[in-house]
Design a protein around this nucleic acid. Structure first.
Lengths: 139, 139
DNA sequence: GATTTTTACTTGCATTATGAAAGTTATTAC
DNA sequence: GTAATAACTTTCATAATGCAAGTAAAAATC
């Protein structure tokens, strides 16, 4: 784990870890689409290159943002899941979504509006509901 | 403005604009250190290269996240300021700070703790107080 | 008013990261 | 046994970043 932090600023340090163009999109897909395998991530709307995907999955695992596991009876498919550290990225992602919803209206479609709306009206509740959903998925 | 968005997802789109390792640090310095000139940004703890700084300032200006102006009687120094769109990045930055505060304890010093604490205990109030501070700076 | 310093950059080049496409290996399905 | 799937790795082109030095205009100093 060659963590070359630029400083000990919490913002700078977080960006050193997850401040690239792909990491948060993988987390997004895990959170909102329930994706958990390599091929599911590979089919994202944004067409991540497979070498980058592979690299990001191992980085996120090394950072303990995600876990890598298997299902019993299947030696082939890797199942990725969010750790607590990973789940706690939700508020960041939602604030990003809200910012875009407020400020990128020229570009964005209205598809995400109801979703972001719920977050806006009660952030605490939204986040708690999502955390409950994460637990439900884990069974 | 060659905006090559990877998709119309609000999260992906925001990352297309500000999802690099430097943009949010410039914004951070404007918000929390009141920095407003090229040379002030240049002296950040993280040692941004001058060509990157120059590039990011013009990109952020093009995106209408910051404004570029002058003070009367000074033809030399450029004064950069946050637009509304830029100020609204505060909640994202604070959630990032909170995440680091919660999850990067091995790395971070305790300097930022009281600051993040205030955000944790009442986010709404913290954000409003900062917005008031921004206005005060603008005079 | 000439010289130095400051401010805000730009340029050139090395290094690193990303992107696209094809290839590889192990596992599972047929 | 053969084909398809899942999860990668490799190669190579392109783009982004980092470093060092240089430039030009304005301001401060002598």
């Amino acid at each position: 784990m060659k963590q070359k932090f630029r400083s000990n600023c919490p913002i700078s340090s977080a960006l050193d870890l997850i401040g690239d163009k792909w990491s948060l999109l993988i987390i997004r897909d895990m959170m909102f689409s329930g994706k958990k395998t390599y091929s599911e991530f590979s089919n994202s709307n944004e067409k991540i290159a497979t070498n980058i995907l592979s690299n990001r999955l191992s980085m996120l695992e090394e950072l303990e943002i995600i876990n890598k596991g298997k299902l019993e009876g299947n030696k082939k498919t890797n199942i990725y899941s969010l750790t607590q550290k990973g789940k706690e990225l939700l508020p960041i992602i939602m604030e990003i979504a809200q910012w875009s919803d407020n400020n990128l209206n020229d570009h964005l479609q209205d598809g995400a509006k109801p979703f972001v709306s719920k977050f806006k009206s009660d952030k605490e509740e939204f986040v708690q509901n999502m955390y409950t959903l994460f637990e439900k998925r884990e069974g």
